[in-house]
Write a protein that binds this DNA or RNA. Structure first.
Length: 817
RNA sequence: GCGAAAGUGGCGGAAUUGGCAGACGCGCUAGACUUAGGAUCUAGUAUCGAGAGGUGUGGGGGUUCGAGUCCCCCCUUUCGCACCA
């Protein structure tokens, strides 16, 4: 009979919902397990195969843990603010709120079809005032502590999204993370969150969490800690000073020139008359260049002299001050001391412009490169001479500190998080700008500052809210005079930085329930794409630590364990609506059912690897499901007919029964270890092997073993194909849902031990066959078996055995002459 | 340019500590049941060879009784970083 997936899946989804099978009891925290998958971004398109690949397998893991006795919480919600909805509105005139809510309706239906055990009572969306109110509240708490501040700075501007972006949201080719359009630099006054205050802790915390090494490394690199010293250089014949940051204070004697970033505020002041024109021309030439061009490492170095000189504090020598674009205003102090002898970039620049080079570390004899970066004895360095780099660094820092012209310093690459966006569909920033009082925060009891529905979309680079008179005009909370609201909205990464806390009680009248968060966070298992490594996953860690400092959470990290699902591509390209290459899962689920589709996604390959989409093998899992169903139908009600034992004694079983009993227990053990580690493909393979054994031999087993085997097989399959398993469970005579209470079964260890083993026989390292011998047979016994086997023995004929290598239960290798 | 991961049949992919390469599935071939087969079942399926046997895990070297697995060099792909002082 063909497996009637449609009726069966609907039946069980209704059953689960009616019996609240997936409702989490938060009061029982003894074996709590918070499993979270990154919530969905309802960008206008519905779920595609990539979403399914993210949600289905993760749910399988959660179900597995539930069967094992964990009290699992698995929620789902909507990251509902953001650009796509707004861009869609600009194109079609449909309001983002309307399109988003409609989309969520559709997506919710799709999500329910997957058959995940989401606790739907915990559903949330970020675009409603009850949620974004708490973004504003969070903003105010940060503001109070001086961690939310406004400054005028060069910021990233996406020419297509018409808004600023955080550094994290600019790809390394200088394009926008969201739309891939060019990003340019603009000077604007914007709101920032002071994530840099947590730089050190964000770095340290990485050692305490179970995340993929690759992701931790990306965060480490992004934070970019470097230890060094700040050194003050006097400008010759002037009062001004230039501070530089260097990781190599030991090379100070080799500093033969200095370089300022072209934007450095001192440039104008120190440039001498003769060099003014050149400097101005150079600065102009930089402006017209994009960030990508400027920061290209293949580009030849450029720069001009300012005509000014500084004094090297170590040796009192006058050294020229240049400007060059390879020095960045945004890192360190925007100025460097150049030590061409020990720095490749400085070497390149020095040789190009004929600047002097002094080596201060003795390179090894055969050294033929230019700058020497390695360790060695200090030379040409007065009181440092003869010291290795580490010691020389220390001594130089001591010297600088004593002379009060420098100190040891730590520098980070991490910049503060720019959170304002010149867009409509987001959380309004709860600040009023008053001519007299300046920026005034809204009182907490006045929240939320509601996002008005009426709005004119003008992708002009101005915040749409600025032109909504009703919204923008207000009175100053402090003095009562007419004032204006901040017209910008927050980066949507603010929404997602703390949503895992809100999930625990989305209707709570506070930001989240502290009691629940103390008991249920950190999230135990977090699954989501690797593309968030230095965005969402960094921001949430920061916000979590901040909330901890407010006393609102009791842990240091939000996500204890992190797993990245691989990407499902289509013809090599990532699925996206704009590329028009999305594969709609509905197309398959109506044809083969949700369990088959879920199984197929998991069977395709390693979960962390992803892969290119192809439906070629789907009939494999389709057949598997049909065969499981057919098998169970052949044993209808068997569980009610006999008493099913929990265990069999091997000696009581026939050889066929032993084989079945072994296979069932081996499969349970295999599925358990594989599922634990997200290795769904090999877990399914084990169940397929088990099914092959059952279809072949179950018919020749006693009824008790038939019932035993089916029971265990179905439980092992249940996390992977939940609807099918529930149905089969019922068919064999079970009355209550598999997910009603934990019932994962331990395997019978005795059944895992094989009685006999086949040993590989090699002659001179070449495979010549195998012999079957009892487990743990001795070297002599195996040898007798080999001699008794003509086919193998003939390879030994007329030869002298020089040596024999024997590995118990594995292999025997005869070395012959 | 630097760093990391990967490269296994026609295809997706399996292989504790080095110990029978190709589990499981797709596809394919043959057969059975069929009016039919794009359903189902059975058998086969790395490759060369009639066979004995040889050859095979990107390429080339090495260590070892024995290498997909360890070491060195090279090639390719993917990802990350890319003047961070």
């Amino acid at each position: 009979m063909r497996y009637p997936f449609s009726e069966i899946e609907t039946k069980w989804q209704i059953n689960w919902e009616q019996n609240k099978v997936h409702k989490t009891d938060f009061s029982n925290t003894e074996k709590k397990l918070y499993t979270l998958v990154m919530f969905i971004y309802p960008s206008g398109a519905k779920l595609h195969c990539g979403h399914w690949y993210n949600y289905g397998p993760t749910d399988t893991w959660a179900r597995f843990q539930k069967l094992k006795g964990y009290n699992v919480f698995e929620p789902m919600g909507y990251d509902a603010f953001g650009l796509p909805a707004e861009n869609y509105a600009i194109k079609t005139g449909i309001h983002p709120k309307d399109s988003t809510l409609k989309n969520i309706e559709d997506i919710r239906q799709q999500l329910k079809k997957i058959g995940c055990m989401y606790d739907w009572d915990a559903e949330l969306m970020t675009c409603v005032p009850e949620y974004y109110k708490w973004n504003q509240w969070l903003f105010l708490q940060l503001y109070k502590k001086g961690l939310a501040y406004r400054k005028n700075a060069p910021v990233n501007w996406c020419t297509s999204c018409q808004t600023v972006l955080a550094n994290e949201q600019v790809l390394n080719n200088g394009t926008c993370e969201r739309c891939n359009a060019a990003v340019i630099q603009k000077n604007l006054t914007q709101w920032f969150f002071k994530i840099t205050n947590y730089a050190e802790e964000l770095l340290d915390g990485l050692d305490k969490i179970n995340w993929p090494e690759k992701t931790k490394l990306m965060q480490r690199n992004w934070i970019g800690k470097s230890i060094g010293a700040e050194v003050t250089f006097k400008i010759a014949d002037a009062e001004d000073q230039i501070k530089v940051f260097t990781t190599r204070p030991d090379t100070l004697f080799g500093a033969t020139y200095m370089v300022l970033a072209p934007e450095h505020p001192l440039v104008e002041k120190i440039t001498t008359k003769e060099f003014k024109d050149k400097v101005e021309a150079y600065k102009d030439s930089i402006k017209s260049m994009s960030e990508i061009e400027r920061s290209s490492t293949v580009k030849q170095k450029t720069g001009v002299a300012t005509g000014a000189f500084a004094v090297n504090p170590a040796n009192g020598k006058k050294i020229p001050i240049w400007i060059a674009d390879y020095v960045l205003m945004t890192y360190g102090t925007g100025a460097i001391m150049a030590v061409p002898g020990q720095d490749e970039r400085d070497w390149e620049f020095a040789t190009q412009f004929n600047l002097p080079i002094i080596r201060t570390v003795q390179p090894p004899e055969n050294f033929s490169d230019n700058a020497f970066l390695g360790d060695g004895l200090a030379i040409n360095s007065d009181f440092l001479n003869g010291l290795y780099v580490d010691d020389a660094k220390k001594k130089m820092i001591d010297w600088l500190e004593e002379k009060k012209i420098g100190k040891s310093t730590i520098n980070y690459r991490l910049r503060d998080w720019l959170i304002s966006r010149q867009r409509y569909w987001g959380t309004p920033i709860p600040i009023v700008h008053c001519e007299d009082c300046g920026e005034v925060p809204i009182a907490e009891d006045q929240l939320p500052v509601e996002l008005p529905y009426e709005i004119e979309f003008k992708p002009t680079g101005e915040s749409p809210l600025a032109s909504n008179q009703k919204f923008i005009n207000t009175t100053c909370p402090t003095c009562g005079k007419n004032a204006k609201r901040d017209p910008d909205t927050m980066d949507t990464f603010v929404d997602s930085a703390w949503y895992y806390l809100r999930f625990l009680d989305p209707k709570n009248e506070k930001m989240f329930d502290k009691n629940l968060s103390d008991n249920w966070t950190p999230v135990d298992m977090y699954v989501g794409g690797a593309e968030h490594a230095t965005m969402h996953l960094l921001y949430s860690r920061f916000i979590h630590k901040f909330l901890r400092d407010l006393g609102l959470v009791n842990s240091d990290e939000p996500f204890k364990t992190l797993v990245h699902q691989g990407t499902i591509t289509n013809n090599g390209a990532k699925m996206s609506k704009s590329k028009g290459n999305v594969v709609n899962p509905d197309e398959f689920t109506v044809k083969v059912g949700n369990d088959v589709f879920r199984l197929y996604l998991m069977f395709m390959g390693p979960y962390e690897q992803g892969g290119d989409w192809s439906d070629k093998g789907i009939s494999g899992t389709e057949r598997f499901v049909a065969r499981v169903y057919d098998l169970c139908c052949n044993y209808k009600n068997i569980y009610n007919e006999i008493n099913t034992p929990n265990k069999f004694e091997l000696e009581d079983l026939s050889s066929i029964e032993k084989s079945v009993y072994r296979k069932v227990n081996q499969s349970i053990a295999k599925v358990e270890t594989e599922l634990e580690h997200f290795r769904f493909n090999t877990a399914i393979a084990a169940l397929m092997e088990c099914l092959n054994e059952l279809t072949k031999n179950l018919v020749n087993c006693r009824k008790e073993l038939q019932s035993y085997s089916l029971e265990r097989f179905i439980v092992s399959l249940a996390p992977l194909a939940p609807h099918l398993s529930e149905e089969c469970w019922e068919i064999i005579g079970k009355k209550i849902s598999i997910y009603h209470k934990p019932l994962w079964v331990d395997c019978d260890e005795k059944a895992l031990i094989e009685e006999s083993v086949s040993i590989a026989i090699q002659v001179g390292g070449k495979m010549r066959g195998t012999v079957d011998v009892p487990m743990n047979s001795s070297e002599d016994d195996v040898k007798s078996a080999v001699i008794a086997d003509d086919k193998i023995a003939k390879h030994l004929e007329g030869k002298t055995i020089v040596k024999q290598i024997f590995v118990l239960n594995k292999i025997m290798n005869f070395i012959v002459k």
